[in-house]
Design a protein around this nucleic acid. Structure first.
Length: 644
RNA sequence: GGCGGUGUAGCUCAGUAGGUUAGAGCAUGCGGCUCAUAUCCGCAGUGUCGGGGGUUCAAAUCCCUCCACCGCCA
């Protein structure tokens, strides 16, 4: 099979388990993968970026049953949420694989059979601790209690020891091969410290791995022995093969396999750095180049977890700031291998200072000056002086460094480098004071040179930030009068002087609005929702319900809240008076469609200040896949009527 | 308990083939500019480089030891 002459780059995220709603952790991994993909495309690689969902297993089976759904219905619902979030974040994946897809299941079965024929998979007896009430085997690594028994971590009841027939993968046979592989490929696991952990784990000896269950029905059946179900890891890991076409589109598969990098969270390192290469060795597939384990985002210094209830939902940030600020923050704040701390203060600080003050303001002042002093079009410029040349040469050097940092997955360093250059351009403007030359007609061409130089630098910057901030990058590009998508450029073609004279600059709008902390936090509070634990219903009494004053409201006036994507300021007549409220529904409803409509509003909710505006009431809406749907009255009801 | 890592300015961190007064960003203070999103530019600090000991003409950087925190394993 002849490989394409272009170099290929195949990057994967883990497939996300559909019993969980997408949160900042999922977003982080996927954003890293997206930025690296975009960089590699600009660098001329043929890129394949795979993400998707892991949909089998007992947890899904149970979660679905609790909700009165079938597993696939639950999966379908969660998949939409993931896809929506990726769309909002501008994730440019090439394929979204679901482990319930037919070709994936067939691919896994085929490999299973192959390994069984090679006797790398054999039938045996699994002894383990089983929790009767949860109908679940306990994870191997749960320690014994003092009495030699084990306790189920989910329900706290004592588990019993049972045996069942199952298939094993002969992992023990791969200990030496794996250690040899690690020695000959020392950068297989990144960062290095994780490689050390892997090696020391394998050195301690590997036990064969049970890879099927009879107690789980929701999964891929073992071929020719369907009472056994293939256990999730053997199923899930093979998505990296089936997702690029294994067994269905071999041309694509052979073009992209082996993967360049599997991006993972450190919790699943063992599966990717030990089990996965062993499976691949057994089936005679080449091994991936790198498994890159990234760190965690902590929330206010503590680990985010479902049980702590401090899992960060990215939607609030996205509503206020759009995707690029979040992408920038996550990639700029920490190197990929380390943990980071997410606080709203830190986020806002970074975004205001780097995006609004430095880059946003640079774009704004440059474009505005060209607009004001040249009517948007620079026609003639003076010869390049030394100081102008320095700015141009500095860009070349920055571009090379940024390229190398991106190549090394050091995205934070690349951004630091770019921001160093942004400061340099701001300094260049301060030193040359173009606003002073503007009063002197004889200085017109010198003025033109200075602004030309600044615009060229800005154009270069917009290219360099593209992997991290595709939307803002393209915006700046467009403002500078470019008419092509930025992806048409590459590191090879991008020139400092690419900004050509006579191009009409578009009138700019603030790229990254500054947001004040107290407004942001108020909005966060107003949006924080208590989600009842699955399977539990927190009842309230009728007396408690009566405390909520619900009224029919008539919408009088609606306007957009400046500087936000989603917020509308709505004046609503509640019979006795008109109240204003702020609501994040601009994606779903246009202001003109709302006026005159009647709906239900809460009028005794403590007012909150959102983006500087006091919200004195709240409307009711269904939240469906993060879209708000408002129930309106069809009948003609008087404003102010009580609703109960 | 075993293996690995980290501890440097108020905060986040950079800095090891040992070498002149230990750096950056943010935060703080002062000054300048007004094209720009109260933005931008300049200047100014501050540190027993976790503690102790050692090697060396010279150590944040090498060695020993102790303390604290983190990760993996048991």
């Amino acid at each position: 099979m002849a490989k394409n002459s272009k170099k290929t780059f195949y990057i994967t995220t883990p497939i996300y388990y559909v019993n969980d709603m997408p949160h900042i952790g999922h977003a982080y991994t996927t954003i890293i993968a997206d930025a690296l993909s975009r960089h590699k495309k600009l660098a001329g690689y043929d890129v394949f970026f795979l993400t998707g969902t892991d949909e089998h297993g007992q947890k899904i089976e149970k979660a679905a049953a609790q909700k009165g759904m079938t597993p696939i219905e639950l999966a379908d619902q969660v998949v939409i949420r993931f896809k929506n979030l990726w769309k909002t974040l501008n994730i440019s994946y090439d394929y979204f694989i679901r482990t319930t897809q037919d070709f994936h299941e067939k691919g896994v079965q085929k490999i299973f059979l192959k390994l069984k024929e090679k006797e790398v998979i054999y039938k045996g007896v699994y002894k383990g601790w089983y929790c009767v009430s949860d109908e679940n085997f306990l994870a191997e690594d749960i320690p014994e209690d003092s009495d030699g028994q084990k306790t189920c971590p989910d329900c706290g009841k004592k588990a019993g020891q049972v045996s069942e027939e199952c298939y094993f993968f002969k992992l023990s046979a791969y200990q030496k091969k794996l250690l040899d592989f690690y020695t000959s490929h020392p950068s297989f696991v990144q960062p290095q410290s994780r490689m050390n952990e892997v090696v020391s784990f394998v050195r301690q000896g590997l036990k064969d791995l049970s890879i099927t269950r009879t107690t789980v029905k929701w999964g891929i059946p073992v071929p020719d022995d369907p009472k056994h179900t293939i256990y999730v890891w053997f199923d899930a890991l093979h998505n990296y093969l089936t997702g690029i076409g294994y067994d269905l589109n071999l041309a694509s598969f052979e073009k992209f396999w082996p993967a360049t990098v599997h991006l993972i969270g450190k919790d699943i390192l063992r599966f990717h750095a030990i089990f996965w290469p062993a499976f691949l060795m057994a089936a005679d597939f080449p091994l991936p180049e790198t498994v890159y384990s990234h760190g965690w985002w902590l929330k206010d210094e503590t680990k985010m977890s479902k049980s702590r209830g401090n899992v960060l939902d990215p939607h609030l940030i996205l509503d206020v700031f759009g995707p690029d600020a979040l992408r920038y923050f996550l990639l700029r704040e920490i190197p990929i291998g380390l943990d980071g701390n997410f606080s709203h203060e830190g986020f806002l600080h970074r975004v205001n200072s780097d995006l609004a003050n430095d880059l946003g303001n640079l774009a704004q002042r440059t474009l505005t000056m060209i607009q004001n002093f040249f009517g948007g079009k620079i026609e003639k410029i003076a010869k390049e002086r030394d100081i102008d040349k320095q700015l141009r040469l500095a860009f070349v050097s920055v571009k090379n460094k940024v390229f190398r940092f991106y190549e090394a997955y050091a995205i934070n360093r690349a951004l630091e480098e770019i921001w160093g250059y942004i400061n340099q351009v701001n300094k260049y403007l301060a030193e040359n004071e173009p606003w002073k030359l503007a009063n002197d007609e004889s200085q017109k061409e010198n003025l033109g040179r200075i602004l030309y130089q600044a615009a060229s630098a800005l154009r270069g910057i917009s290219f360099l930030i593209f992997p991290v901030m595709p939307e803002s990058s393209q915006k700046i590009w467009d403002y500078l009068g470019e008419s092509t998508p930025i992806e048409k450029e590459s590191y090879a073609t991008l020139k400092f002087d690419g900004f050509s004279l006579g191009k009409k600059i578009r009138k700019p709008k603030a790229l990254f609005p500054r947001v004040k902390l107290k407004d942001f936090l108020a909005e966060e509070k107003s949006k924080t929702v208590q989600i009842p634990k699955e399977g539990h219903m927190d009842y309230i009494t009728f007396d408690e319900f009566k405390k909520i004053d619900l009224r029919v409201g008539e919408i009088i006036k609606v306007e957009k809240v400046e500087g936000t994507r989603k917020l509308l300021k709505i004046d609503v007549n509640i019979g006795t008076e008109t109240r204003q409220m702020v609501s994040g529904i601009a994606d779903e409803y246009k202001p003109e469609d709302l006026v005159g409509k009647k709906l239900v509003v809460v009028i005794n909710l403590k007012p909150a200040v959102i983006r500087g505006i006091e919200s004195q009431a709240m409307l009711l809406a269904a939240e469906i896949d993060d879209k708000a749907i408002i129930p309106f009255f069809i009948e003609d009801v008087p404003a102010g009527a009580k609703v109960k």
